[in-house]
Amino acid sequence: MNIAEYSGVWVFIEVKDGKIVPVSLELLGAGKRLAEKRGVELSGILVGYGVKPLANTAFEYGADAVYVYDDPIFKLYRTETYMRAIIECTNRHKPEIILYGATSTGKDLASAAATDLATGLTADTTILDIDADTGLLQASRPAFGGNIMATILCKKHRPQMATVRPKIMKAMNPIPGRKGEIIEEKISIREEDVRTKVLEIVKSATKQVRIDEADIIVAGGKGLGDAKGFGLIHDFAETIGATVGASRDAVEAGWIEHHHQVGQTGVTVTPKIYFAIGISGAIQHLVGMQNSGLIIAINKDPDAPIFNSCHYGIVGDAFEIVPMLIEQFKRVLTAEEVKNA
């Protein structure tokens, strides 16, 4: 492989329900910074059916060009079909780097494509950098359960590929009307030859809480003692109109469902306010919430690591402090209601 033939930074643009998913916009921002440092173009690769107009969004968020595969065969995501598009396009245009969101689709696609392209793939990257001279991508990620960070390199193979965790990279401020080049690609895949069929898509009946979309999160940990104690978290959240989050230990204790879990094996969140109550602040928890706007920690142990990662902390018993906060908020918020009435 002549690695000098490979040039440019690509982002796989994932589409869901007719919209580009947020992590793809974040990656256009991250990809732009890499491309500028290396002095190359940033391109998107957009696969789907009826997706071509979305290329304009990609331009506004920093893409210089977008490769578009718009075909009924790509209506629903399937590894087999999407992978063929990625592989063909890569072999034809030879990018130096391809970034994917570390979503279930992004990970599925990247893992399959990396095998056929016989190249390196770094999973769940949280920090990206590039050597401007050699184009070597430095993809860093938590390793060994988040105890350490590892910087992964792929020296002799191209493209260098990484999946990147959502909510970590910053999207550019979109520039309305910014233009780029649309490159329409064609691929011939016959439906009869595809071995997988999506029979049905079932959305959860009760719209599952998406903690990553919340403005305020009240998160509770093992320090709440038991399921009943964890009720305090629900009470507080309800009082202030917040969403409930949890540490893994609270989830594993069965006090709350997994989709509320914040952290490395849960969700990464960036709310405007994050309350960590009875949470010690293990590194695996911190990676999921440390970019929150305002972090408030309440913990009875003055040496709890969470106090190193919060903006304001109260050393004390949650069962004493939180009810006081609930009281105060109730008073303030009802006063507000009266005023607004």
Partner: peptide, 23 residues
């Protein structure tokens, strides 16, 4: 194709303000 270039401990965060005084 991939190698571990380096391993390092995540940077220790700075820490915030611990509120003082009676509860």
């Amino acid at each position: 194709p991939t190698i571990v270039g380096s391993v390092w401990a995540p940077p220790k965060p700075q820490g915030g303000e611990i509120l003082q005084g009676p509860v």
